[in-house]
Computed example of a mutant assay.
Amino acid sequence: MPVTVLASAASCGVTSSALALTLASSRPSLLAECDPKGGTLRAGFLQGQVNAGFGLYHLAAAERVGPEALAQAFASHLWPVDEAGNRKVLPGLTDPAQAAALDRTWPSLSDVLHVLAHDAGHDVFVDAGRLAVASGRLHPTLTPAPLIHQADLVLLVVRNIEASLSLTRHLIEPLRAELDERGTGSSALGLLVIEREAANRGRGYTTHQIADALRTPVLAALPWDASAADFMAEGGAPPRGYARSDLLRHARTATEQLEAVAQRRRIQQEFPVQSPEPQLAGVLQRLTQHRVGRRG
C-alpha cells in the first residue's frame, strides 16, 4: 500500500481530507499528523482525549536511542479511531516550537511509515500541512521535507476556485523540481481537488480545467460536505447518515484510485521503459518518413 503525503499552499482542508481517506479506507490505515506548525486532531476530532504526553513530538527522543526504540515508540503513540482498531492516528505537535526537535527524526519516521505501508499492508496518509518554500526549496524546519521526498504519492490539496489555484500554482514547479532532485521523482506529484463550488453553475472549475491550469494530474476529488467536514474538524457525534455521506463514499473511491496510481508508479520504476538504441531509432525514423512520403 502507498505512503501518501497531503499538503497545500494554504489552509484548505488538508487534515479533514487526510482523515476522510483514513476513515474510508477498506484496509488498515494510519493518519500521521506531521504538520510542523502544529496539529488540530487532538483538540478537534479527538476532542481532547489525547494529552500532550502522547504523539509525534515524543518520537524525537526515541529516535536518538535507535531504530528499534523509534519503532516501539511509534507503535505506542498511535491512537485508534474505530472500534476494531484498524484505523489509527498519530497526533501531531502541540506547539510549533517543537518542530526543530524533529529535524533528524523525519528520515527515520519515513522508514517506519514505509515499512507499515509496504510490508504490513496499511494505507498511510501524512498530513504535511501548509508548505513553506525558501529559495525555491522546501523549508527544512517548516516542512517535513524527508517525508515528502520519500512518499509514494504527494497530493496538493486544492479547492476548485481561482483563489486556491492561484496560490497553488506557485508551488508546483519548485515541488516538482525538488521531487526530481531529492525525492522519488516528479511523477509522484498530483492534485486532490475539493469540489466546494459547483462547476456546472459557472462558479468553480472542473477537474479537467484544474489539471490543465496547473499542468498536474488530478488523482482524486472529494465533495464539500459541510456536516461531515465539521465532524472531521470538531469530532463529537457523527451527523445523521455520516456512514453513507458523499464525503466518505468519494473518499473510499479515492483510496482505491491512489493505490492504483502508486502501483503503476512502482511497476514503472521497477521496469522502466528503455529508450530505443540510436541506430534503431534512426531506422524507425526513416521507415516513418518513407510511409508518410508514400501516402503523400
Results as ranks from 00 to 15, higher is better:
Leu156Gln: 02
Leu171Asn: 00
Asp230His: 08
Ser26Glu: 14
Thr168Ser: 04
Ser164Trp: 03
Gln257His: 14
Gln209Thr: 12
Arg266Leu: 09
Ala199Met: 10
Gly121Trp: 04
Leu41Val: 04
Gln209Glu: 14
Arg240Pro: 12
Ile194Pro: 01
Leu247Trp: 01
Arg87Ile: 10
Leu155His: 03
Gln72Ser: 15
Gly282Met: 09
Asp123Tyr: 00
Ala260Arg: 11
Ser76Trp: 10
Pro144Arg: 04
Ala254Ile: 06
Val65Gly: 05
Gly293His: 13
Leu171Pro: 00
Pro146Asp: 05
Leu131Arg: 00
Gly39Ser: 04
Met1Gly: 07
Glu270Gln: 14
Val157Cys: 10
His114Pro: 09
Ala198Phe: 10
Leu56Val: 05
Leu19Val: 02
Ala260Glu: 09
His122Leu: 13
Arg159Asp: 08
Pro146Phe: 01
Arg252Gly: 11
Pro2Glu: 03
Leu219Ala: 08
Leu78Gln: 09
Gly235Leu: 05
Pro91Asp: 07
Ala163Pro: 09
Pro276Ala: 09
Ala43Val: 09
Ser186His: 03
Gly293Ile: 11
Asp246Met: 11
Glu68Met: 12
Gln209Gly: 06
Val115Thr: 12
Ile267Gln: 11
Ser11Leu: 14
Arg27Tyr: 07
Arg137Thr: 13
Leu191Gln: 03
Leu155Asn: 01
His170Asp: 12
Arg104Ala: 15
Arg215Ser: 15
Val81His: 00
Leu46Pro: 01
Leu31Tyr: 00
Arg169Trp: 04
Pro217Phe: 05
Pro107Ser: 05
His77Gln: 07
Ser25Glu: 05
Ala7Trp: 00
Thr253Arg: 13
Asp111Ile: 10
Glu277Ala: 14
Pro278Met: 05
Gln289Phe: 08
Ala100Leu: 15
Ser29Ala: 13
Arg176Asp: 02
Lys37Gln: 15
Ala61Lys: 08
Glu234Thr: 14
Leu258Thr: 02
Arg64Pro: 06
Gly235Ser: 07
Leu171His: 02
Leu179Phe: 02
Glu63Leu: 08
His58Leu: 12
Gly129Ser: 05
Val218Asp: 02
Gly235Pro: 03
Leu248Val: 07
Leu222Thr: 00
Leu167Cys: 10
Trp79Cys: 08
Thr216Val: 10
Leu116Ile: 07
Leu189Gln: 00
Arg294Gly: 12
Val5Ser: 03
Asp152Ala: 07
Ser11Gly: 15
Tyr57Ile: 13
Arg203Phe: 11
Ala260Lys: 09
Gln209Asn: 07
Ala18Phe: 04
Arg182Lys: 15
Arg295Asn: 11
Val158Thr: 06
His208Leu: 15
Glu195Lys: 06
